[in-house]
Design a protein around this nucleic acid. Sequence first.
DNA 1: GTGAAAGCGCTAACAA
DNA 2: TTGTTAGCGCTTTCAC
Lengths: 331, 331
Amino acid sequence: MNIAQVARLAGVSTATVSRVLNGQPLVKERTRQRVLKVINDTNYRVNAVARNLRRNRTHAIGVIISNVLSTFYSVIAKAVEDVALRNGYSMVLCNGGDEPDKERQYLQVLHENRVDGIVLSPTGKNNEYLRALVSSDVPVSIIDRQIEGMGCDTVLVNNREASKKAVEFLIERGYRRIGCISGPRDRITGLERIEGYMDAHLKRGIPVDEKLIEYGDFSLESGRENAFLLLTNNDIDAIYVANTDMAIGAYQVIKERGIGIPDEIGFVMFDDPDWTRLVTPQVTAVSQPVYTIGSTAADLLFKRINDRRNYIDKEPAKIVLEAKLIVRGSA
Amino acid sequence: MNIAQVARLAGVSTATVSRVLNGQPLVKERTRQRVLKVINDTNYRVNAVARNLRRNRTHAIGVIISNVLSTFYSVIAKAVEDVALRNGYSMVLCNGGDEPDKERQYLQVLHENRVDGIVLSPTGKNNEYLRALVSSDVPVSIIDRQIEGMGCDTVLVNNREASKKAVEFLIERGYRRIGCISGPRDRITGLERIEGYMDAHLKRGIPVDEKLIEYGDFSLESGRENAFLLLTNNDIDAIYVANTDMAIGAYQVIKERGIGIPDEIGFVMFDDPDWTRLVTPQVTAVSQPVYTIGSTAADLLFKRINDRRNYIDKEPAKIVLEAKLIVRGSA
DNA sequence: GTGAAAGCGCTAACAA
DNA sequence: TTGTTAGCGCTTTCAC
């Protein structure tokens, strides 16, 4: 089934069918009805591939996140999708997995499919390709991780400040030897959260003991390992974990060892998943405005998509959102 | 940039460029190099839209799930994506939200974009449209919810049996008044899990007290409400919750009331999210083979996509996977 | 081993 | 108000 067949059956030209399909007003009502009847009877659906080719617009945006399985990124995906939908767009969701190769591949696929824009939480290892993309006028919004001089809109969370607040809170409560399970130093979010840990100590005049900082990879397993190391090798009185998955692992180890929270050890984590309110005591946690991160990035993207003229040379926006510490019973 | 410009710069015809792009062997090595150089220098990327139109194949599949935010569906999405990737396909992920209108809209978008196949966890309210799709030869795999006579491959979990096992376990442990927070009766998964609850009672010769069954809508909030109702109006000694989100709500209420698990009340749930192992005592739960559901559905889909000839009239497959009860400390 | 050219299904400029 | 037609960028058949 194609537009020509519909035209033939309805006794009109393809142009008229096209007009009907696109809701253009300059078609006589009787003609429109005839065409619509044929469309209905034959179950005809316009071929968006051909339409996109002709229009040079796909009405689709691509989203590359590192992990659909993480709550953080799936909330972001949902936020972006909501915005896309409101703009009459569909979303192609890709799981970059924090692997530069996979990210690169997805960037290519999205580019080749001529998506009208991309929301990306980048590994930071494909900057040249990204730059080529941006300079070939594909609007890109970057989430969560900044890339200097990339010239695309960026939405970030103030990781450093939020991390500082969390650790400061522990210090205020009287904890002095605060173990830190942080992310990798070469991931900007990881780095910033460590800096926040340092900042808090500095501000309170407490020396940082480097031995209390372990570097994980944001995975559950590394949370386990590093909690084990911290609890075995040091006399810590509190533990601060820099993301959800590692926190799950660390929390498991603490439980398994029968260490009491908060009496024997204080526990604070970055991110605030459901279970922080299910365990006893509830967990003090840093809550990020996750949905807002996604929707803001998408809004910026659609500003550029919908108003290319005005935005094409506009200075890229950089929006920094604040996360907040939610104090509960674990420290 | 398009194939014609590349051809011009390389001093060859568009046909030759196309051959190079597609790795066809009948190009002289020297020519190939010349073309590749131009492609590299100009940052040219093939236009997949045009290619798809010409080839009448998109190398993309669509996935419609009800909620990216739920672990269940995001694991499925991941599984499908892994399989798609292995087959050289990309995935368009859509969030049906269990809303028939949204589902319908997404089905249309996917159809119009001529995806090569669809994986769907259906609301069941768009069966006519779905039927049209299937009869116009778009391969469809259905997940989690059966639709009679639809003629597409289906992958299900044996909800009824798993639910029965869970409730039987409670009965064996000596619980007699088992409150049940179930899903809506008009959702097949909801219904089956209630039936399992009944089956267990029947098998053990214990009469079912209808007052002990509350019907939620699978949301956290309805878990709270119904736990509240059950705990207020009845002297129950155990509670069985039919999905993750309701279980979170119910668990919160039990905690808030200071009711002890498992002494004062036994607690068993369908689904097995991370937090079942973080709370004390750990939660006895029904674990579904989630990843396998997704990967199996995708495998079936690609069988049809890759071997249309053989599969076009093949009897649709119906695969039923078993869930298992994982006994921990909460009952 | 390479090129010319038709055509995938649609839209839109132009003509009638 | 409607029709004719060029052309979007690519692949592929056929000819050389």
